[in-house]
Simulated scan of single mutants.
Amino acid sequence: MKKETILRLSREIAPRLGEIWQDLHQHPELGFEELYTGEKVAKILESLGIETQRGVCKTGVVGLIRGALPGKVLLLRADMDALPISEETGLACASREAGKMHACGHDAHVTWLLGAAMILSQMREELHGTVKLVFQPSEETTGGADGMVACGILRDPNVDMALAAHVSPNYDSGVYLIQPGTVTANPDFFTLELAGKGAHGSEPQSAVDAINMGVKIYELLQTFVSRLSSPCQEVVLSVCTFHSGTSRGAIPGECRMEGTVRSFRQDIRQQARVFIEDCAKAVTKLYGGSYAYHYRMACSCVENDPALTARVQANTEDLLGPGAVLTRAEKFMGGEDFCFISREVPSVYLFTGCRNEEKFHAVPLHNPAFRLDEAVLPVTAAVFAYNALRLLEA
């Protein structure tokens, strides 16, 4: 009976969720700037009669749905921030904020968690315990989840378990990847600033060419995965920005490179940190330059609790049918600050397929043309709500 009620309610709220998502998509906000998003979230929660707290960790919002029956506390989390990317989707609801875009689907995450709140707020009499709704800022940049945990989101009332989801263009709309164990990578970031000596383009012998040093370092960095790591190890090292020079007639004396390392083992990330600096040290010494180096370990892997994962798999299959759930797939090399929650309480982080090739050509996350199938919004709201009811009644 609960299943039928949740599916019916999810269909009824689908138009409203579409409106919310389109509005959020038009108003993307970067980390710790989510004022419009946070206020919209808070007003919707309050309209549902949900206890609401604004300004948690600057721009975060927390809501509490207290069930009529005794039980534990389940945390449901959505991240709210967008990316500094100029949108190229051509959607009627495209971003109105220059240089900002919801290219990672966090607008969908917020929307489906609001949908779950709409459903659960109508089912309080059947709800055991408490559902804590966490709308988190700044997942993309400085680790908003860490700050939210420091602000006490796992206390008062104390959280027993947690659930979160992320859109994925790697899977069809309506398919959910729910697997135990490690589900995201260690996301590390590095910056190299190279200093040489500028000179006129006609006098290269007078320069310490920063572009030349940068290119040599770039070439060396590519060998970390191809030659210095075992083929059995899952690791990525990518240089993502390379800036040098301002004039076509001058050899630059400065070069700045930024990139990321993704891995699943602590020893690999330590090896990468040392190797990058060794490359910079060797090349700049050879050519007579110098370097400044910064390496940041942003967060760690997200680990899905095996027992809780099995329950979420079973609940989701019960709601949508066995064909809707994948239990094994290639590891996701992206990072996710949900790790700050999953390391504290048993947690499940699942992936929501959002690809629909009949409607649009799928592109990766963080792409200016990224799109998602809006049909996932009410369905994922139902998945969250049904799991909340089933996990807490157990």
Rank of each mutant, 00 (worst) to 15 (best):
Y386C: 14
P187S: 14
A388N: 03
R273S: 13
L389S: 04
E88N: 09
E330A: 12
P187M: 09
D318N: 15
T142F: 04
I119T: 07
G323C: 11
H166P: 01
S290P: 05
T52R: 07
V225Q: 11
R248M: 09
A164Y: 01
A116R: 01
K100Q: 14
A272C: 13
Q205K: 07
A375E: 15
G18S: 11
T52K: 11
G321A: 12
V167Q: 04
V348M: 10
S263E: 13
M101T: 03
G99P: 10
S347H: 03
L192K: 00
V376N: 07
V134I: 05
V261N: 09
N158F: 04
L350A: 13
G129C: 02
V261P: 06
R16L: 13
G321V: 14
A394G: 13
V312I: 13
V73A: 00
T59N: 12
A94G: 10
S300G: 15
T380L: 05
P306D: 09
G334N: 08
V131H: 04
H27C: 00
P169I: 14
K43M: 06
L30S: 10
R262C: 10
E358W: 06
E303R: 15
L64H: 02
L75D: 03
D305K: 14
G253V: 06
Q270E: 11
Q270A: 10
T52H: 05
T327C: 06
E46M: 05
A164Q: 07
F370S: 13
Q22D: 08
Q205P: 02
S290Y: 05
A42R: 07
P322V: 12
A362Y: 07
E88A: 14
E33G: 01
S173D: 06
D337T: 03
A150C: 11
V134T: 01
F275A: 13
C93S: 06
P187E: 04
V167R: 06
P368V: 15
